[in-house]
Amino acid sequence: MKKRTLLQWILGIIGVGVIYAIIVFGLILSTYREVPPAGIDTMIVLGAKAWGSEPSPILKERLDAAIPYLEANPQTVVIVTGGQGPDETEPEGVVMGRYLESQGIDPNRIIVESTSTTTVENIQNASSLHDISTAIVVSNDFHIYRAKRTATQNGVSTVYGLAAPSKTKATFVSYLREVVALGYHLIFTH
């Protein structure tokens, strides 16, 4: 009798976990194909690891997703965000700004935020550098739902997402990590 009860508990916990994962994965997928309208004043590109003076593949995906919009909307100011981690040689924001310039984006349109270490700090620090009420947030497809929600929770009244398609070998792990991170975000941030 006790073995059966234990098995029922284990199956119940697994069942709840599967339902949770399906719901959270659905939320992640709900915004990754969003297309922001033309003419938005501000774009925030969220940082990710830099490899020396170059963007990592994930960071490059984000920057490459931002460039077509910036080219089509020359009035849009772009804020690149990200500080310097202990294993980075310079801040992510600096690497990002330099990359955008190398791709033809006018440096006068680029604002570099180089101290943040989390998504919340990315948004808060970007807001302290530039007046933001409406913005496009750029991140990878697995992160865009949480990034938009974080921006809204931190004072950006209208947020559009621009999701960079994830094509690196870390994509599967990134989605799994985001299922946990988004669950934590939904429960513990308000």
Rank of each mutant, 00 (worst) to 15 (best):
S128Q: 15
F142M: 00
V120F: 11
N125K: 09
T115S: 12
S133A: 12
H130L: 13
Y145R: 04
N122E: 08
N122F: 08
T150L: 07
Q153G: 06
I123R: 06
H130F: 15
V120H: 02
F142V: 07
H130K: 14
P165R: 15
K148P: 01
A164S: 14
Y160P: 00
D141A: 09
K148C: 07
I132Q: 10
S133Q: 15
T115F: 12
A135K: 08
Y145N: 02
V138M: 09
E113A: 04
I132V: 15
R149E: 10
I132W: 04
N125M: 10
L162F: 06
S157V: 09
Q153V: 06
I136M: 05
R146P: 06
A164G: 14
I136D: 01
Q153W: 10
P165A: 13
S133P: 06
A147N: 01
R146N: 03
I144R: 06
G161Q: 03
T119R: 00
V112A: 04
S139M: 00
S114M: 00
A164Y: 13
G161S: 02
I144C: 06
L129C: 08
E121V: 07
T150F: 07
H130R: 14
A164N: 14
K148Y: 01
S116W: 07
V137I: 14
A164H: 13
N154E: 02
T115K: 13
E113H: 10
T152V: 13
L162T: 02
A163E: 04
N122W: 05
P165Q: 15
F142H: 03
S127L: 10
S116C: 00
N140W: 05
A164E: 12
I144F: 06
V112L: 05
I132K: 07
N125G: 01
A126N: 05
N125S: 10
L162I: 06
P165N: 14
T134S: 00
S139Q: 02
A151D: 02
Q124E: 14
A163S: 09
T117I: 08
P165K: 15
A164T: 13
H130G: 00
T119Y: 06
A147G: 06
Y145P: 05
I136Q: 07
A126I: 07
A163Y: 03
T117M: 11
V120S: 04
T118V: 08
V159K: 03
T119K: 04
G161N: 05
S133Y: 13
S139E: 03
H143Y: 11
T117Y: 06
H130M: 14
Y145W: 12
D141L: 08
A126G: 09
D131Q: 15
S127Y: 12
I144L: 01
S114V: 07
S127W: 11
T134W: 07
K148D: 10
A135T: 09
T118D: 07
A164P: 13
T118F: 10
Q153M: 11
A163I: 01
Q153H: 10
A126Q: 01
D141S: 11
T134L: 05
V112R: 02
V120A: 08
P165Y: 15
